[in-house]
């Protein structure tokens, strides 16, 4: 085919938003855009990916009810072999992490993950990703690669819109034995608070240092009329329940004000809060990535600032 193969991601009958972002990104790569839907019943999903800019939809009907890495790997490898795309785009998501690197390794593809910009240059691709807590960016090239697989950072491209009229082609599913079988989903427990509806979140991260410090911020949140939220390490340490976790594996929030104390701004944290109305960040590290999304920043010790806020 040459052109771009976009791998749709879906969960329990819904195509995930990142898929439509990949369609937009595919235009940055260039060439016809084919969306691949691997599912038990692809016909229930093809309508959701038939947006403007999609030239063709390829489906592979598999036996597995839900995502299973061996099944997706075999299906994607078969489609790449059949279509010979120049580029394969997936979301940088937990499911992609479970099978995409295996496909790239097996087929010897060019490969990069957590990519947030891509451009064609003289017949080949240049991808951008970041290093060292997003303090440094880099451009990667893929010399000698006929096909490049890129895992793209969610919310880096606008979702494609407008209805399309792509042809649907059905391809056969390769036979495969699944060594990692889906058993069940477990829902996230409801929790004692709903941070997604709060107008003002006071959010603390690993910078608070120790468990004993938490009480101080509960009181400060009360006093300021804020709801307390946290970054993942606070939940991992068992200091707070995950109902209060902001980020990719926690909640996506959009309060009017997000006051971040001692949070570095890792990409998975930003995924949950970067669209907040006003972001204020306090961090001792002047180069912390949180300042790239903040509207107001202070390079300061969070305890000193917190002590003053209490007054």
């Amino acid at each position: 085919m040459a052109g771009v193969l976009v791998v749709a991601e879906h969960l329990r009958g819904q195509v995930r938003p990142v898929t439509l972002e990949l369609v937009t990104a595919a235009k940055d790569v260039g060439g016809p855009v084919t969306v691949l839907v691997i599912a038990k019943d692809p016909s229930a999903l093809t309508g959701q990916v038939d947006v403007a800019g999609v030239d063709e939809i390829v489906t592979v009907a598999v036996e597995a009810e839900e995502f299973e890495n061996d099944v997706y790997q075999a299906a994607l490898e078969a489609v790449i072999a059949e279509r010979q795309p120049d580029a394969v785009l997936l979301g940088f998501t937990v499911n992609s992490m479970d099978f995409a690197p295996a496909v790239a390794t097996k087929l010897g593809l060019g490969y990069a993950s957590d990519v947030f910009a891509v451009s064609p240059e003289g017949g080949s691709l240049v991808a951008q990703r970041s290093y060292y807590g997003a303090k440094v960016n880099a451009e990667l090239e893929f010399p000698g690669k006929d096909c490049v697989m890129l895992l793209l950072r969610p919310t880096s491209w606008a979702p494609a819109e407008g209805s399309g009229s792509a042809n649907v082609t059905e391809l056969a599913a390769p036979a495969v034995e699944s060594h990692a079988r889906h058993v069940d989903f477990e829902e996230v427990p409801q929790g004692d608070v709903d941070i997604t509806t709060a107008e003002f979140l006071l959010s603390i991260g690993r910078g608070v240092g120790e468990k004993d410090a938490i009480g101080q911020f509960e009181e400060l949140a009360d006093r300021m009329g804020a709801t307390l939220s946290v970054s993942r390490p606070i939940v991992d340490a068992g200091w707070m329940t995950n109902a209060r976790q902001v980020g990719q594996s926690g909640k996506t929030v959009k309060p009017k004000v997000y006051l971040a104390l001692g949070i570095s701004g890792a990409v998975q944290h930003l995924a949950g809060m970067k669209t907040a109305g006003t972001i204020i960040a306090v961090n001792t590290d002047p180069e912390a990535a949180i300042f790239n999304v903040a509207h107001y920043g202070a390079v300061a010790d969070l305890f000193e600032v917190a002590d003053e806020l209490e007054k």
Partner: peptide, 16 residues
């Protein structure tokens, strides 16, 4: 094993 998906949803998987 429990795989942790986006939003904290758990995908329970049996692996050989």
């Amino acid at each position: 094993v429990s795989r942790e998906l986006e939003g904290g949803l758990i995908d329970v998987v049996e692996v050989d």
